[in-house]
Amino acid sequence: MKGIKILNGGMLTTVQDLGRLGYSAYGVSPGGAMDSWAMKIANRLVGNDDGQGGLEITSAGFKIQWRTDALFSITGGDLGAFLNDQPLRPWCAYPAKEGDILGFNKGHWGLRAYLAIEGGFELPKVMGSQSTDLKGKFGGFFGRKLLKGDELFIGINTTTDVSPVIEKEVPDNMRGYDDFDVLRVIPGPHEDRFTEGGIKEFFRETFHVGQAFDRMGYRLEGKKIDPGDEADILSDGMMFGAVQVPGDGIPIIMGADRQTTGGYRKIAHVFSMDLGKLAQKTWKDPVSFKEISLDQAHRELKERERSWEKWVTGLKEAIPAQSNRGQGKNKRYFQVTVNGKRYNVKVEES
């Protein structure tokens, strides 16, 4: 079989992509990877489309066996990945051989690691996405987390415009975790419903991740924000990264599996580029908020895409394609052009 077998499901491992968009009006959470930049880059490293499904691995413990040769990448938090006995650095793609064991045995940094495989998984899309909806029990692998004994089939990579980047580590400053304790936010929309003191406290205070945090949201601990008179609003739509302040004055940051609507005031929204930092936070990690303007946020988003392109182009120019692919292994990746279409080709030497 062309796939992987789960030897240990770990704490919580689910199939995720960039989310099930377009169904929030019917109460379906978009879901998707909590650290969507890490998921995207994992896919790009193996030559997949950005939106291909991969695995979101929460905490160390997850372990699989490869039932086929494959190209995979790991990004996100450093959960101590190893291939057989070889430790692997995250934010990098590696080839695996049939029978190899890939495991994550120690949480060195962060909470969530991402595993992408060239070709993704042979799984149906439910409402346009492979993301696992744990609450609704649909999507992903039978709508549930992966368990020991599960076997997932690997799909065929039909993408022709992304070429893999093998055994080249994505530089630190492109991972999105700089200034880890600070989440940049765009204020609003209900900031006028808080007292001036309440807003000041929100930006001055250092909060900590409380015990209640999961894919639905992160409840913080720390000084209470003056909730003013009216804590509740008429329920309205909620974005990933919305910072709600209920009547008890303790902020909650909404996650990928949030409810689609909520009835508490939102003091601010976390800048989407900083949601990866949120996704890597765990119990007791400090969180403070800093304002960023909408214009600046949009500039940085575009700049991030440009630096990625620049890095990839730089690699291609620095190293001839063939020697870079599958170094030291009897397997090579090529890109060939046939009738004007580009294809990624894998050649195995016998």
Binding site: G22, S24, A25, P30, L234, G237, H298, E305
Partner: peptide, 21 residues
Amino acid sequence: MDVVPAYTTIMINYNPLQVSY
């Protein structure tokens, strides 16, 4: 990317790489 009608509001989720606010 997504749109959520509610009692008195509509939330819109757009792709900022394609369009400005």
